[in-house]
């Protein structure tokens, strides 16, 4: 993208960016399409028109963030707290894990919250704790399925699948040797995929336990996301956006599709559009772009700022795209149709 002029980036015409001075852990839209940048310094920044509000949610650093149940944001910190920040900026302590790092958080619109603390995934309802799910080793990532019926947690030598409403908590254990981190359910709930310590992904087809190995990455994959209908799995970790086909018998025996490559800079974050087969990607130099899968057409979003993109998200209505970098640059673009 070296030859692209500044004006060609959507950020120039439709966006705004700020330097926030701390590692952007998450760019998170809540269900009402309100954005928050979640920073490692313990604050959330709400990009309102004019001044961006800064809200201190944690005493220490923030390690993880997700959209909260109906609105607002859920964050986990190295202060051991699980916090909710409401759209008005008020904060509520949801749980206190006594100084243990809250490594991963997730929430579901049906009224569920989850926090991974060491080997345990704490499941909470609107009224408080529901259950604590124990794993054989530290949890590397958590994800609810689309319906909020199951939660998957990755760990050493595989992942565990739990029914949230089960009377007796016994996980279905998906085994694969190694250390597993980021985890994702396919939108239809039939597949679970993890990113591993080695530069590879592993997947399980839940109907028959079929294993899927997806490898060939030059670096660790940190970011994985299914497209809205689940036809493609977009991944970071290579010099292009690597997309694995989850249709026509794939991804087994199929080569992945690669988009927006060629600059010898690694993709560090991916996010899939909530309706269309469009994927946004952030790169190691701070470049952000989006690409249409069918045509391969690339639209530049933000020019390189020199620091890897660490957070990237679409708003649920597909009209907003927010990104942040390790050095603390945060931006948001408005893609809604202009009348």
């Amino acid at each position: 993208m070296a030859e692209v002029s500044e004006d060609a980036f959507l950020l120039a015409s439709r966006g705004v960016a700020r330097d926030l001075g701390a590692w952007v852990v998450g760019a998170v839209f809540d269900a009402a399409n309100r954005a928050a940048f979640v920073l490692a310094d313990g604050t959330l920044r709400l990009p309102d028109a004019g001044e961006w509000r800064a809200i201190t949610a944690h005493e220490g650093g923030i390690l993880s963030a997700a959209a909260d149940i109906k609105d607002g944001w859920l964050t986990g910190g190295d202060d051991g707290l699980l916090m909710r920040t409401a759209p008005d900026g008020s904060t509520t302590r949801i749980a206190d894990y006594k100084g243990k790092w809250v490594d991963h958080v997730a929430a579901h619109e049906t009224g569920l919250r989850a926090a991974a603390v060491g080997k345990t995934v704490h499941l909470l309802g609107p009224a408080g704790p529901l259950k604590a799910l124990a794993h054989p080793s530290s949890v590397g990532g958590i994800a609810f399925d689309t319906k909020g019926k199951r939660i998957a947690a990755s760990h050493y030598n595989g992942a565990s699948l739990w029914f949230v409403g089960a009377k007796e908590d016994k996980p279905r254990v998906l085994e694969w040797k190694g250390s597993h981190h980021a985890i994702a359910f396919s939108p239809d709930g039939t597949h679970v995929v993890t990113a591993m310590q080695e530069p590879a992904l592993h997947g399980w087809r839940l109907t028959d336990g079929q294993h899927m190995r997806m490898s060939g990455y030059p670096t660790k994959t940190r970011s994985i996301a299914f497209t809205s209908k689940g036809r493609w799995l977009a991944t970071s970790g290579a010099e292009s956006i690597v997309l694995w086909p989850f249709f026509g018998g794939g991804p087994m025996g199929k080569a992945p599709t690669e988009l927006a490559g060629g600059d010898e800079v690694m993709v560090t974050a991916v996010a899939c559009h909530p309706q269309h087969e469009v994927v946004a990607a952030g790169f190691g130099d701070g470049l952000v772009l989006m690409a249409e899968i069918a045509s391969g057409k690339v639209v530049p979003v933000a020019p390189p700022s020199g620091s890897p993109v660490s957070a990237l998200a679409w708003s649920p209505n597909g009209a907003g795209l927010a990104f942040g970098t390790e050095a603390g640059r945060a931006g948001i673009v408005d893609l809604s149709r202009r009348s």
Binding site: S137, Y156, K177, G178, Q197, E198
Partner: peptide
């Protein structure tokens, strides 16, 4: 927690 694991290499 001193969690040691083997690399898949």
């Amino acid at each position: 927690d001193e969690e040691v694991f083997e690399m898949n290499n």
